[in-house]
């Protein structure tokens, strides 16, 4: 259940770490896995030791998005449990999203973290193929 002001983890390497939902697209209710939302990047990811001495230049190169950017995103995990057609129910511990551009292409080039299998039914196969694991 992602709605206005919900905070999500960003699990791609676009450079954002935490994003806040500011709008759910195409519907008037809470978003779930596979839905498209608009987010504001609230926290940047700092790319550890390799970007240490290089300073700001490499950081800005690695980070395709900055804090305060408004982007589109796709939800890939929800802490709200949802049921599958076969009767099983899935629940993750956190809410997570992947940033995309307006055309629907992911901004990052790799994902780190499990994503829900429901993305396939919603035409997000590209994100699914980038993910290390799906459930």
């Amino acid at each position: 259940m992602i709605q206005l002001k919900s905070m999500l983890n960003v699990i791609d390497n676009s450079g954002a770490a935490v994003a806040e939902c500011i709008n759910v697209l195409k519907m008037k209710r809470a978003a779930k896995v596979g839905d498209r939302i608009i987010v504001v990047v609230q926290k940047q990811r700092n790319f550890g030791p390799e970007s240490g001495p290089g300073g700001s230049v490499s950081v800005s190169a690695a980070n395709k998005v900055r804090r305060g950017d408004i982007r589109h995103a796709v939800i890939v995990r929800t802490a709200k449990k949802y049921s599958r057609p076969d009767g099983s129910v899935v629940k993750f511990d956190d809410n997570a999203c992947v940033l995309i551009n307006k055309g629907g292409e992911p901004i990052g080039s790799r994902l780190n973290g499990i994503v829900a299998h429901e993305l396939r039914g919603k035409k997000w196969s590209k994100i699914l193929s980038l993910a290390p694991m799906h459930l």
Binding site: R77, K81, S83, S88, K91, F92, D93, I114, M133
Partner: peptide, 14 residues
């Protein structure tokens, strides 16, 4: 799984 907690309900007789 990948350091994210996952919970699944399964029906025993499914």
């Amino acid at each position: 799984l990948t350091r994210v907690g996952v919970e699944m309900w399964y029906k025993i007789y499914s």
